[in-house]
Each structure stands twice: as C-alpha cells, then as structure tokens.
C-alpha cells in the first residue's frame, strides 16, 4: 500500500494534467467536467491524501529519530565531560 499509492498519485496527476491540456483545445469532450473525470479527480484526492498522511507520519518519525540521535549525542557528550570532571 505504502509503495503503490505514491505511484498512483503520480499517474493520476499526469492524467489530470493531460485532461487539463486537452480541455483547453476541446472543451466539448468534457475531460474536466464529465462524471468519469470527476472519479479520477476523487481518486487523485484520496491517493494524494493517503500519500500526504504517510509523508507527514514519516516526517514525524524522522524528526523523532533526529531528536533521539541529538539527545543521544548530547548525552554522550555530557557523559564524556562528566568523566573528565571526575578524573579531575
């Protein structure tokens, strides 16, 4: 799911852009207004929302990881300093 949805988002975006361009030349074909097109737009919205949720979750995880790494480094740095102090 996590692997397929971003690709679907890309493909549905490409389809939407294609419809947008064709619609500029021939609006009577209703590429931007037909019921089928609306289904594509809805699918794009759902895929984009899911991809975004995954991305946001990943960003949070990444931030947490960075935070943990930073704390760990800080701790290590603090620990090293403490040892030095003790020796003194």
């Amino acid at each position: 799911m996590k692997k397929i949805i971003p690709h679907l988002t890309i493909v549905l975006s490409a389809m939407t852009l294609t419809f947008f361009v064709i619609d500029k030349f021939n609006e009577y074909m209703a590429f931007m207004t037909s019921e089928m097109s609306k289904t594509v737009f809805a699918a794009l919205a759902v895929c984009a929302a899911i991809t975004s949720v995954y991305l946001i979750a990943d960003n949070y995880r990444e931030e947490d990881r960075r935070e943990r790494r930073k704390r760990k480094k800080q701790k290590q740095a603090d620990g090293t300093d403490g040892t030095t102090d003790a020796r003194q």
Binding site: H7, V11, F31, M36
Partner: peptide, 22 residues
Amino acid sequence: KTVLLDVLLFAVLINAFAYFHH
C-alpha cells in the same frame, strides 16, 4: 525502472479512461 513502470501504468489507465469516456 520506477519511471518506466509509472509511464506504463499511466498509458494503461489513460487508454482505459479514453475507452470508457468516449
């Protein structure tokens, strides 16, 4: 490989759309 697969998926979907659309 990823780009090619996406292009292929795009071609399949847009043709399916065109068939059912008009």
